[in-house]
């Protein structure tokens, strides 16, 4: 089966979740072609091959530098036809959602989001996808001949045994109607681990009392090479930026370890974290509901426990 993978960039590197999508495709495809918009470091291009792609189509035209949902969708539809791809794979993301949906209409494809396992093609074409914010799965059948799969982050290990890919510069056809949304500016944290992609997340809740106390959360995150997150009231009160809000109505994470400090564990918060592999809860209230969903728990005052834990981890690393 020929599979096309749509990639997203962080600076000049391929986003981790996009490499996961490449490896997902390589697990069942005979030929994996990856499509990337924008300039990429040589290391970035090679990482696509190592993750499992045979070929990389790179769009270097300046007009595709900024993420542009409509122009990306048109270009992807063009490449699917050129490459005779039978399946399009991409990482579920804020841009990926819209791109997948628009391509599915352009090409009459079946689209499934939040896929967690390789397709079962023994009878028809079925995939497992996460639903109810991680509380259940639906085994879903795709009926159209072209399939689009958006893959849940942190679900597929990135392969390390691929080869240097063939790299081809591709110039898509351009339709001015695809350039009507103007990007005025964009702000992005740089040099930090992105929360939705992170392998370890350290989150703080209202128990931390105020934004001035986040230093210890950041120190623990640094010791663990983790991203920082927070509960909804914390971002509602502007203690932390909105892109750190974890939960049912915020970012859904599925890291190897989720550390919750001073978060009670309301069901809406748990909905965003329950596909984490391990959960560590630090809370001064032994009755906090979060302990019921956790693997490791410490009952204690965060102001006392967190600095101790950070020191112990730092000491264990040397």
């Amino acid at each position: 089966m020929k599979v096309l993978v749509f990639l997203e960039l962080d600076e000049e590197n391929i986003r981790k979740s996009s490499l996961e999508a490449v490896s997902y495709a390589a697990n069942f495809a005979s030929q994996v072609t990856a499509l990337v918009f924008g300039s990429t470091s040589l290391e970035g291009l090679n990482s696509i091959g190592i993750a499992g792609a045979n070929k990389v189509l790179q769009v270097t035209n300046d007009r595709f530098k900024q993420p542009n949902i409509m122009a990306f969708s048109s270009a992807i539809a063009e490449v699917v036809a050129l490459e005779n791809a039978e399946t399009l794979v991409l990482a579920k993301s804020s841009t990926g959602d819209s791109v997948a949906a628009r391509v599915s209409i352009k090409l009459g494809a079946s689209l499934v989001s939040n896929v967690t396992e390789v397709p079962d093609v023994s009878e028809g074409f079925k995939v497992k996808r996460s639903i109810y914010t991680g509380k259940a799965f639906a085994i879903t059948e795709l009926s159209a001949s072209l399939k689009i799969l958006s893959i849940r982050k942190n679900t597929v290990p990135i392969k390390t045994d691929g080869a240097t890919p063939e790299i081809v510069i591709f110039t898509p056809q351009m339709d001015e109607a695809d350039f009507v949304v103007k990007v005025l500016s964009s702000e992005k944290i740089t040099g930090q681990i992105l929360l939705p992609e992170a392998d370890i997340v350290v989150s703080g809740g209202r128990g931390l009392k105020g934004p001035e106390n986040w230093g210890m959360i950041e120190d623990l995150a640094k010791a663990l090479s983790a991203a920082t997150g927070c509960s909804k009231p914390v971002s509602d009160m502007d203690w932390r930026p909105h892109h750190e809000h974890v939960g049912q109505t915020g970012i859904k994470v599925s890291p190897s370890l989720y550390v919750a400090v001073g978060i009670s564990g309301a069901i809406q918060h748990l909905a965003g974290v329950n596909s984490s592999k391990y959960i560590l809860v630090i809370n001064k209230d032994p009755e906090a509901p979060f302990f019921k969903a956790a693997d490791y728990g410490i009952v204690g005052d965060a102001f006392d426990v967190v600095p101790k834990l950070t020191a112990a981890i730092n000491a264990a690393k040397v």
Partner: peptide, 22 residues
């Protein structure tokens, strides 16, 4: 329609918490 749900599954239950003394 272009997709149909064949059946649903629930995730495996958590195996239980280990409490650690601070």
């Amino acid at each position: 329609v272009r997709t149909t749900v064949n059946h649903f599954e629930l995730p495996p239950a958590k195996s239980g918490i280990k409490m650690i003394d601070a």
